[in-house]
Structure formats: C-alpha cells, structure tokens
Amino acid sequence: MANTTISEHSVAGQLSRPASLALVLPLVLLLGLAFLLPVANLLMGSIFTPAPTAEHYLRIAQEPIFLRILLRTVQTATIVTLLAFLLGYPLALVMSRLSGRAAMLVAACVLIPLWTSVLVRSYAWIVLLQRTGIVNNTLLNWGLISQPLKLIYTEGAVIVAMTHVLMPYMILPIFSSLRSIAPELDRAARNLGAGHWTSFLAVTLPLSLPGVYAGAIMVFILSLGFYVTPALVGGPQNLTIATLIGQQTTDLLNWPFAGALAGVLLLVTLGLVGVFRRFLRFGKGA
C-alpha cells in the first residue's frame, strides 16, 4: 500500500508534455522576439540589400584591416581567458576552503562587482589609468617616473579592464566544482604520501576541470563580443570586432556591412565553441 502511494505521488508530480511545453513557451517566445529575430534580420540585411549579394563579406576578406581586427579580438579574448583563469583559480580555491564570515567576505568581494554596472567599472579604470589618474599620480609622487605614462587607450588597458570585469564568470564555476570535491579525497592522497602540490595536481585540479571548462568558455565568448569596456578604455586605436560593428551602425549607418561583420563574428564564435567542446570531450576522456 505504501509503495502504491509513493508511486502515485511520483506520477502526480511529473508534468505532462503539453504542460511542460506551455511552461517553456514564454521563454522561447521572448528569446525569439528579443534575440533570434533581430539577429536574423541583421544577417539577412547583409545578404539582401535589396538584391542577393556577397559584397560585404568579400569586403571583409579583401581588406586586411578587418581581418586584423578580428584576429586582435580573438587574441584579446584568449589572453583575457588565460589571465582570468590564472587569477581566478587561486581565489576560487581559497573560497572553497573557507567557512563562516571569512567565506562570506570573499564571496561578497567576488559577487559585488557583478551587481555594479559594467559602464561604471569601465569608467573606474579610466580614472585609475588616465594621465592624471591615481596610478600615474602615485608613481610621480614616489619618484618612480618623471612624466606620466600612457596607460589608457592601450591594448594592455583593454586586457586588464576586461579581465577585471569578467573574472567572476571564471571564479564561480570553478568554485562550484571545487566545493563538490569530497575533502576525503585530498586527505587520502596525503595519507598515501602525496605532498601539497602532488595532491593538488593529481586530485584537486583534474576534478575541478569541468568548472574550469565552463568558466573559460563563458569568459572567452563574452570577451569576443565585449563592447563597452574596449570602447571606453581602448579608444579608436584598439578596435575590437564589437566596437567596429557599433561604429558601422551608429556612426556610419552601414547596417548591411555591420550585419556581415556580425555574421563573421557569429561563425567564428560557433566554430571556436565547437572546437572547445571537442577539447572538453577529450579532457573528460583523459
């Protein structure tokens, strides 16, 4: 009788297929109207203007400046992802081993930037790095430099600012993976004679790789399409593909060519994500 009751409750708790589709439908409609439809309209405009043409895509392939900007964008995204991993993994490891108020304090330091506008954080970096900013004034007062350094509107400034903005997206997935690792595994490795580094390399790091993969792919994809920070901190000398698309739409009003740039960026992003997924499967197999 008890088994029958449990079975009835489990069946009653499951939603039927029409009910599940009804729950998902509003989200699908919102995604279609707010994202898929505008993207499709932009891509169609790059091909039909008004007659079918490949002119805009040929322009991207024929003019080296656009390919250089695309390569610079991929290079910047790669560097930002590596820096976010190198800086974020130790912090995620510390977070996973803390408890009480110390854990809450470190978590607040990671989460509070996510609650702050990207625009505000980008302007904060301008205040820090400009010629009369805090960094240059400090170095001048200490006598380390004789004249202000050019820190703003450089590729280095873009990388540093983007790493700061996107680092929480690397830390949180790694932290989640590290918290799911049983502490007994590390203690067992220690009991078998492994040192701190050996235990970390043989146990902790391999088991945390799913979080590393998730964080890396999020940071990399967000870096490819990042607009606000490169536009404010990098200036016109350090264009990325996203700032170039914004320039074509807002300044030059060349929507068909902007659609072609967006299409190329979308193809590159999907291709790199596909490669990353294959690497992920390889990593799991290894």
Rank of each mutant, 00 (worst) to 15 (best):
L37P: 00
L29A: 14
A34Y: 07
L43K: 01
S16K: 02
P38Y: 05
G45V: 02
L21R: 11
V28F: 10
V28Q: 08
L30K: 12
S20F: 09
L30S: 13
L25N: 06
A19G: 09
L33I: 14
A22T: 10
L31F: 15
S20V: 05
A40G: 15
A34Q: 02
R17S: 04
I47M: 06
P38D: 13
R17V: 05
L21K: 11
G32W: 02
G32H: 06
L42I: 03
L23P: 02
L30I: 13
S46T: 07
V39N: 10
G32P: 03
F35D: 02
L37Q: 08
L36S: 11
L42M: 03
V39W: 01
L31R: 01
A40R: 14
L21I: 14
L29C: 11
M44E: 14
L36F: 11
L37T: 12
P18E: 05
R17T: 09
P38K: 05
L25S: 07
L27T: 09
G32C: 10
L29Q: 06
I47K: 05
N41H: 06
A22Q: 09
L29E: 11
L30Q: 10
S20Q: 11
M44G: 14
L43R: 00
G45R: 01
L23S: 10
L36Y: 15
A22I: 05
V39H: 01
L27N: 13
I47G: 08
L27S: 15
V28D: 11
I47V: 13
L29K: 03
L25H: 00
L43V: 04
M44S: 15
G45M: 06
G32K: 03
L30A: 14
L37R: 08
L25T: 06
S46F: 00
P26H: 03
L33A: 13
L42P: 02
L43M: 07
R17D: 06
I47E: 01
